[in-house]
């Protein structure tokens, strides 16, 4: 009995200490260091735009193959059946500078999509992937609205929202389908901390920009770009956690103040007398 109490107390202290350290360090770092946490990396400077990653993704996830997948440089968009797209991006300041970019869910460390799903169909797994439970999704598409990159797309046949799962049904035993398929090693997968170190080093080498290091509070999919996302004309996400709960509370409190104000006005109105029109009407 005594032992149990001590243990609980110790657990409490441990819990308290880790949480406060966690809070003071910022939420992402202690989690990053976990050896069970994985990340994916794309290096646009190495990519040759062969789109084998796209085909591999479709094969593994049994997604319908459509016309856009042909080897063209036409712009392709994510859909409920295309979880990965490869597109040519052009640097606005240096129009000659063209690179292929492998684009998919960024697997945010603090995913905005999971925060807004009304039925908790989206989960951030401890290994890193952000996964939608297709048996649970009600198809409201709020996750699409909340995602800073507009990734989760609606599948009109299945009537649910779908997106990249970072092959959570393969990893970490086997690397994600796209990574295995890449012929030139433009894609990489591994323990997050190692991937991050590698990515930082490579970014420095090529003098580029590491997308996902800070965007949306950090993401588990990283992309080495040759220049900033602004210059490439990509969607620019804020460099902080998107949809923080505190902001949500703040905004809701404004709403409640508005409601109280309205109720107050209604009360004041209800105390007013009936207008004197009767008299004037009679006079007329």
């Amino acid at each position: 009995m005594v032992r149990r109490t001590t243990k609980t107390r110790r657990q409490f202290i441990k819990f308290f200490a880790t949480t406060s350290i966690g809070l003071s360090l910022g939420s992402s770092d202690p989690a990053e260091a976990s050896p069970r946490k994985y990340g994916k990396l794309h290096d646009t400077t190495k990519c040759i735009g062969c789109k084998r990653c796209v085909s591999a993704c479709k094969r593994w996830n049994k997604l319908k193959i459509d016309r856009d997948e042909e080897l063209t440089d036409r712009e392709t968009d994510l859909t409920g059946k295309s979880w990965v797209v490869v597109n040519l991006t052009r640097d606005k300041r240096n129009r000659e500078d063209l690179h292929y970019q492998h684009w998919t869910c960024q697997h945010c460390i603090k995913p905005a999509c999971a925060g807004v799903c009304p039925v908790k169909a989206i989960k951030k797994l401890p290994e890193g992937p952000v996964v939608i439970d297709e048996k649970k999704c009600i198809g409201c598409r709020y996750c699409y609205q909340a995602c800073p990159y507009k990734v989760p797309r609606f599948d009109f046949e299945k009537r649910v929202t779908r997106k990249c799962t970072m092959c959570h049904d393969r990893i970490p035993r086997v690397k994600p389908a796209c990574v295995t398929a890449c012929p030139v090693g433009a894609l990489d997968f591994g323990v997050k901390q190692e991937i991050l170190t590698k990515a930082r080093k490579r970014t420095e080498e090529v003098g580029g920009y590491l997308l996902g290091e800070h965007e949306a509070g950090g993401t588990d999919f990283l992309t080495i770009l040759t220049t900033t996302p602004e210059d490439l004309g990509l969607v620019v996400a804020p460099k902080k956690v998107v949809n923080r709960d505190l902001d949500k509370l703040r905004i809701t409190s404004y709403g409640f103040s508005g409601a109280s104000l309205l109720t107050g006005l209604m009360y004041m109105y209800s105390r007013t007398e009936e207008e004197e029109t009767e008299e004037t009407e009679e006079k007329e």
Binding site: Q145, A146, P238, N243, I251
Partner: peptide
């Protein structure tokens, strides 16, 4: 209103 007001993106 919050459905819209909360959507930072």
């Amino acid at each position: 209103g919050a459905v819209f007001g909360h959507t930072e993106a």
